[in-house]
């Protein structure tokens, strides 16, 4: 079949081990196609058939620029990865990994076997937890606090200086607090990654995001990790600790560059 005659391809969601394919039944995939498993040795790729009218190079380039399409596709991708990762050690694929057919999928699994096996060994028995530290919404208190009343220009400048000093001291103490929280959580995690702070326009958070981190937490440490997050969050009223999980181990399923 030539590329021009092709109308569909295989979309890869995740690579895993020891998955019972029955758990994929009823999990919605892209374009409402059924999910399938492509096996190569002990690796299993979770795939579904997608139309090249939507996922071909031209169409994909266009669609990726459409934030509504991107959100829908990213959510379906994530839901499939979650369903798999609840039942098996799972390495999520990056969005829009597409092969022409199952033979190509198997060839890729053979080619990357050692690296994929290494990733699966590393993440087995763990989940990813997202922890964000935000400044508490009571920040306004800095500005409203006992600052001298303004009656003349010199007072105004003094007041500005005082507020700037207070704010600067507050910011650095909040950053230190975030650092302490991270240092404590790392002890219960197998691995951690600091991610860039998110923009409130996309995440909807209030306050300043002073830490956006991902932790690879062994399942047996999950309760202790949750308890520690709770304790750290209530310990310091300058910050809000936002913990979410379990996530599939996206942030820890990266192949080494080669």
């Amino acid at each position: 079949m030539t590329d021009d005659e092709r109308s569909s391809a295989r979309y890869l969601y995740a690579v895993c081990r020891r998955l019972d394919p029955a758990v994929l039944q009823g999990v919605p995939a892209l374009g409402d196609a059924p999910l399938d498993v492509v096996v190569q040795h002990d690796l299993m790729a979770v795939v579904s058939t997608v139309s090249l009218a939507v996922f071909g190079e031209e169409a994909l380039r266009r669609n990726l620029e459409d934030i509504a399409w991107l959100e829908e596709t990213a959510r379906v991708h994530d839901e499939v990865v979650r369903a798999v990762s609840r039942c098996a050690p799972t390495a999520p694929m990056r969005l829009a990994t597409i092969c022409f057919d199952d033979a190509v999928v198997r060839a890729r699994l053979r080619e990357w076997y050692v690296d994929l096996a290494h990733v699966l060994d590393r993440i087995e028995g763990c989940s990813e937890w997202s922890v964000k530290v935000l400044t508490a919404p009571t920040d306004q208190a800095i500005d409203d606090g006992a600052a001298p009343a303004v009656t003349n220009g010199a007072d105004y400048l003094r007041r500005k200086k005082l507020l700037a000093e207070r704010r600067s001291a507050h910011d650095s103490s909040v950053a230190e607090a975030a650092g302490r929280i991270h240092d404590a959580l790392v002890l219960l995690a197998r691995a951690s990654r600091i991610l860039p702070a998110q923009d409130p326009r996309l995440s909807g958070h209030r306050g300043t995001m002073v830490l956006n981190a991902a932790y690879l937490v062994p399942d047996q440490e999950r309760a202790a990790f949750a308890a520690l997050v709770e304790q750290l969050g209530t310990h310091d009223d300058r910050v809000v600790v936002d913990s979410r999980g379990p996530w599939p181990p996206y942030s820890f399923a990266m192949l080494e560059a080669r």
Partner: peptide, 17 residues
């Protein structure tokens, strides 16, 4: 949270598309 993971993290294997 989802975009920072599915676009920026995860396994990258060159596909046909």
């Amino acid at each position: 949270d989802i975009l920072e993971r599915v676009l920026d993290k995860g396994i990258i294997i060159a596909g046909d598309i």
